[in-house]
Design a binder for these strands. Sequence first.
DNA 1: CTTGAACCTCTAGTCACTAGAGATTGTAGA
DNA 2: TCTACAATCTCTAGTGACTAGAGGTTCAAG
Lengths: 138, 138
Amino acid sequence: MFSIGELSRRTKVKVPTIRYYEEMGLLAEAERTSGNQRRYDKAGLERLSFIRHARDLGFSIEAILSLIELQDHPDRSCETATDIAVSQLADVREKIKRLKLLEKELKRISDGCDGHGVSENCYVLASLADHELCEREH
Amino acid sequence: MFSIGELSRRTKVKVPTIRYYEEMGLLAEAERTSGNQRRYDKAGLERLSFIRHARDLGFSIEAILSLIELQDHPDRSCETATDIAVSQLADVREKIKRLKLLEKELKRISDGCDGHGVSENCYVLASLADHELCEREH
DNA sequence: CTTGAACCTCTAGTCACTAGAGATTGTAGA
DNA sequence: TCTACAATCTCTAGTGACTAGAGGTTCAAG
């Protein structure tokens, strides 16, 4: 049995965040000492690792809640879990696509400027002001 | 002179968002009709387009505030604007890098599952639970 | 038995909006 | 000119996923 601080150290999840996860129903309510402090065991550690890992992968709290519900009903099909992962993947790919376009434009913008006065037509400001200067839609 | 709704239609920025930008100091306080409704001119339209474009590129409100301040003091060097753009570009590249790692892992995860029961070792759930299954750190 | 780090709950703040209530205004058609 | 009613106004509260701080209590080492 270990304290919330120990759990925090082991999982790299901050203490208030752990309490927040409990409040959100991601973590079961922890056992308490006679003095009302939370105590965790290996199961708690594992669940928090799961949550942290899923959050790192960009899953929303809500999605994780579904995943957890699934774990607690092992009779159901794995399909839902796969659906959630697949939709997460689509999300990530969309984000990458958008960011790559932005990267291109930002590179173009920041390469165009070389430290002259703003009054003499700063390319950064001009580019932002005038969408016509973009190479493509975004 | 046009209304906030018209401005919204032209810039694709929602009406409450326009009011929010005004409150945040990104947009100057608009002129008003005798009945207290906001009226905008070409200058307002241009500034809002600038803001929208910068937001699309992921600049924070705070960064845009700096950029606007720069526009209003054309005597200063363009360097600050370039710095902001360059740091934005670094941000975007970092995000792309991270997302690509996630994409890889998510692909691996969602490919591994084919609809069998969760109890028989669903790969999605197992992967999330056990970081050891990751190909690399994230 | 004392000290002080760690813990507790609670409220409020973050960012960039978004939604809704309830009241007022602008404008097009009769 | 009157009447609808869409659009506008202000204000408050909610979103997601935390983070920060106040003020009080408990645990564990010395």
